[in-house]
Structures are given as C-alpha cells and as structure tokens.
C-alpha cells in the first residue's frame, strides 16, 4: 500500500487525505457554482492544493496567514468544517465569518488567517505591518503572505518586500505563479520578471517550488520558515503551478474550440467524481500523490471523503 522511499506512513497519508479533501471540496463547490447557488464571485484553485496543504501543515500556533482573492484552497486547508465554508459563500450567519466576508475577503482568525484582500499587491504591506507588530510585541511565529504572478507586477509588491527586508522582519512571501492574470498570459501582458534576480537584488532568499509534490513542499517550507526566523528576514517562495479547469469554447470563429483559461466561477470541464483526478501529469497535485501511495488506496480514501463531504452539507 505504501510505496518505498517515504517515511512515517501515518503522518504522510493524512497529508494526502488533505489534498483529496481540498480537491473534492472545490469540485462540490464547482457543481454548486454551475447551478448558480452562490451570488458571490468564487475563485476556485484547482491545481493549487499542494502549496495550500503544505503551508497549513507547517504553520505553528503563532503563525499568521495573509491571503488574496484566490484563497479557497487555504481556507479549506485551515478549516476542518466544510459546511461553514459553504454557509459563508451562501452568506449565512452560520458561515465561517458570519456571512460578512463572502469569498474574496474570507479570513478565519481562529485558524490563523488574519487578513485577505481582493486587491492585487494590497496584502503585502498589511503582512509587513503584522510582521512589524510581532517584532514590537516580541511574539513568536512568522507571517506568511500569499500572492500571485499578477500581483508581483504591482508596485506594492516591491514596496512590501523592501520594507520587510529593511526592517529585518521575518516573513514568507509565497508567489503562486500560474502565468495568468485573468485572460492574459505573462508573455501577452508584460516582459519577464525574474523573481530570483529581484530577490537577489534585495539580498532576500529565494526558493523555487515546482512539481506539486506536497511532501517536498512541506520540507522546503519548514526550512524556509526556520531560516526566515533565524535571520530575521523575508524569504520569497515562487510556486510554479497550473490552475486547472480550463475548457474550449466552440464558436463559429473557433470551430475546434477557443482555449478559455479558468479564472473564476464554475468550470464546465470539471465534474465531481469519487476519484478527483483532473490531469495525469505533475500539474495535478492529486496525480502526484500516486508516487507515494497505491491508486487503489487513494481511491478508497477519496470515495469515503466524498461521502463525508456531501453528507456534511446535506
């Protein structure tokens, strides 16, 4: 059942369960989006599960997480109650934030998610303020701020990292690079930004994560967290990933179908199923789990999980 080359089977399988839970939860929400059950805009993060589950796994009690509009994967990873997430999206008082925040600003202070912004680059400076607050109060822990390749084009990104470094503040800046900003790829909208060189120019450590291996991500994040705290400095982690859920739209102009990048709302190409694999390559975090566990075992976990999640919200 457990493939060679890994250790601590009990702990490991729980991480895989979390990836599957995160994926299935999003798929269920996608079905609800198709039925237009939500009035609010929801940005799914299919394909982003590995970094979210890894961040949640390494967070200590005093750590603080700061998110952006595409935050569903982190909120699901940090929040064990699926129904509370759904209720928040339905703007019910039983929701995670009492129905006051909806999706794009969803935070969960009890689970360390203290601020979420729907404005690109906005959250870097708020995270910097939180890191400064920790320093003044001599508190333990670290601030982890998540942003994307679109936000790193903003001046606020440059300002925020500059301030973190200038004031010797420990923080982890995670850039989820899916290469898209709504409907434009990087090469369609700007010149390349070499984040490693940018980090180097500020004497900030840079780590590149690729391949969606949640176990490797946990190891890398633990090391980055430790080094940031020891050095009182920020670390930038760029995570290359692919947002899944794209589809082809057939029109007269595009009889073979025009590629539509998934950005928000329902993805018509995604169907919820007992085995929630979307792509059979490293761009799918669920596929990567098969390196560690037998598919049959993962399928069983997934089947039970789907029953549990659907039961929870009925």
């Amino acid at each position: 059942m457990f493939k060679e080359g890994t250790v601590n089977m009990k702990a490991d399988i729980k991480v895989s369960e979390e990836i599957i839970r995160n994926r299935l939860s999003q798929m269920i929400i996608n079905e609800m989006c198709k039925k237009k059950e939500f009035k609010i805009p929801i940005h799914l993060a299919l394909g982003h599960e590995s970094i979210a589950v890894a961040v949640s796994a390494v967070m200590e009690e005093d750590d603080r997480l700061v998110l952006t509009h595409r935050n569903i994967h982190y909120n699901l990873a940090r929040n064990p109650c699926f129904k509370a997430e759904i209720d928040e999206y339905l703007l019910k008082s039983e929701g995670l934030a009492g129905g006051r925040l909806g999706a794009m600003n969803l935070a969960n202070e009890r689970r360390g998610i203290v601020y979420t912004s729907s404005i690109l680059g906005n959250n870097l400076s708020v995270a910097a303020g939180m890191a400064l607050g920790k320093k003044v109060k001599e508190e333990d822990g670290i601030v982890i701020v998540v942003t994307g390749d679109g936000a790193m084009e903003e001046g606020a990104f440059y300002e925020g990292v500059t301030f973190l470094k200038t004031c010797n503040l420990n923080a982890i800046v995670i850039v989820e690079n899916n290469e898209w900003s709504l409907a434009t790829r990087i090469q369609e909208r700007r010149c390349p930004i070499h984040l490693d060189r940018f980090a180097s120019s500020l004497d900030v450590d840079y780590v590149l994560l690729t391949g969606n291996d949640v176990y490797a991500y946990i190891t890398a994040l633990k090391q980055a967290r430790r080094e940031a705290i020891e050095r009182n400095a920020p670390v930038i982690i760029e995570v290359k990933l692919r947002t899944l859920g794209d589809w082809r739209l057939k029109t007269e102009e595009y009889p073979d179908g025009k590629f539509i990048n998934y950005h928000a709302g329902a993805s018509p190409s995604i169907e919820v199923s007992e085995w929630p694999l979307i792509r059979e390559d490293d761009s799918d975090p669920v596929f990567v789990l098969s390196r560690y566990f037998e598919i049959g075992q993962l399928r069983n976990i997934s089947c039970d999980m789907l029953n549990r999640l659907t039961g929870e919200i009925q």
């Binding site: 708020v126 910097a128 303020g129 607050g133 003044v136 500059t162």
Partner: peptide, 19 residues
Amino acid sequence: PNIESTQVGIGFGLMLSGV
C-alpha cells in the same frame, strides 16, 4: 523608505496585530 501605499497598509497590519 518612500513607500506611501505600503505605509498605509503597514498601519492596518499593525492594527490587526494589536499594536
């Protein structure tokens, strides 16, 4: 530094930290 936008965000971040 000369980072006016960030300076405003920092104040709110401090506020959320109780400072």
